[in-house]
């Protein structure tokens, strides 16, 4: 798999760059020494406790979003599917917003991500209960309804916020970021993401069969109803964890699978690992960019991914149009 090898190399290179770039102004040699050997106290602290968790989180969140987008597109047989569509990401955001609003977020470090995860889990459970036995269209419709509900509730919380500062805090959080995160965030997200990734990996063959439609997939021995629950659960774990630690980072789950589809021969199974690596690369690059473009303005990750991603996506659609028919 040359595509996967190339993507992995890109992720490694961007990960290294992400470790070496920051406002502390450490040289590359100094940074590496601090990372590996400890070195002078401040440098070691910056590398090991600030930059390394940030880099790892950027890669994890990107991978989670990319893999989820690929799996959902495969399940729904629709290139427009993305993690926000089925309501899990907006529900996680709602949880975080409630934690911020109620002051719960200040109670202990992981209060916000844990609340977000609880809401993501509840949304996934609701989705499975409502749409688990129905078809693909039922799943999309239920997801859209859940998204709308979570979005409206989020607006309500903003609407009722006691002062502009509280509202601003919520709005900034929702733009998505991996800045100022700690190892706690990594350890919270990692096991959930690993579990979600394992579930998606187990669903990969079934998603390939779904290329032929649900009846043909069933006739090939794929338990389609179970596959649907698996993909929703796996995506919920991945996206719930991603939103819990990084806020709402849009566009990666939609665009990355689309970008890589042709390179992997359009197979949904092969698109999942490729999109995980591609998503990691995109978020690492975006996180480097927010530090380089406006180091003193705390540019948010989600803002940048959409600002750069959307025109790029449009250009791609422009060059591809007519080729598909």
């Amino acid at each position: 798999m040359r595509v996967l090898a190339r993507l992995a190399a890109t992720v490694a290179a961007l990960g290294a760059a992400s470790l070496l770039i920051g406002p502390a102004g450490l040289g590359p040699g100094e940074s590496l020494r601090a990372l590996v050997a400890g070195g002078p106290e401040a440098a070691a602290l910056i590398l090991r406790e600030i930059r390394l968790p940030r880099t790892i989180l950027a890669a994890l969140v990107g991978a989670a979003l990319g893999a989820s987008g690929a799996a959902l597109q495969g399940l729904l047989r629709n290139p427009l599917a993305e993690p926000g569509l089925i309501g899990v990401a907006p529900a996680a955001a709602l949880g975080a917003v409630i934690a911020l609003q109620t002051g719960l977020a200040a109670a202990f470090a992981l209060a916000l991500p844990l609340t977000a995860l609880a809401f993501a889990g509840a949304a996934a459970a609701a989705l499975v209960v409502v749409a688990g036995a129905g078809g693909t269209l039922t799943l999309i419709l239920a997801g859209v309804a859940l998204s709308a509900l979570a979005g409206a509730m989020t607006s309500l919380v903003l609407n009722l916020s006691p002062n502009p500062f509280a509202a601003a805090e919520i709005v900034f959080w929702m733009m998505g970021s991996v800045a100022d995160r700690s190892w706690q965030h990594v350890w919270l997200a990692l096991p959930l993401m690993a579990a979600g990734a394992a579930v998606l990996a187990a669903s990969a063959r079934g998603l390939d069969a779904l290329t032929l439609g649900e009846d043909a997939a069933s006739s090939l021995g794929v338990p389609v109803a179970r596959l649907r629950v698996q993909v929703v659960a796996g995506t919920a774990a991945l996206v719930g964890a991603a939103v819990a630690v990084a806020g709402a980072v849009g566009f990666v789950g939609l665009v990355v699978p689309h970008l890589l589809r042709q390179a992997v021969g359009a197979s949904p199974a092969r698109l999942i690992p490729a999109s995980a690596l591609g998503g990691a690369a995109v978020l690492l690059a975006a996180d480097i960019a927010v530090r380089l473009v406006a180091p003193d303005r705390d540019l948010k990750l989600g803002v940048l991914t959409a600002i750069v991603g959307a025109p790029f996506f449009l250009r791609m659609i422009w060059t591809e149009r007519g080729r598909e028919a």
Partner: peptide, 15 residues
């Protein structure tokens, strides 16, 4: 048993 459904569905541009 192999089954060839009536609708000729192929969701993705697989070779």
């Amino acid at each position: 048993a192999a089954y060839l459904p009536q609708g000729r569905q192929v969701a993705w541009p697989v070779p």
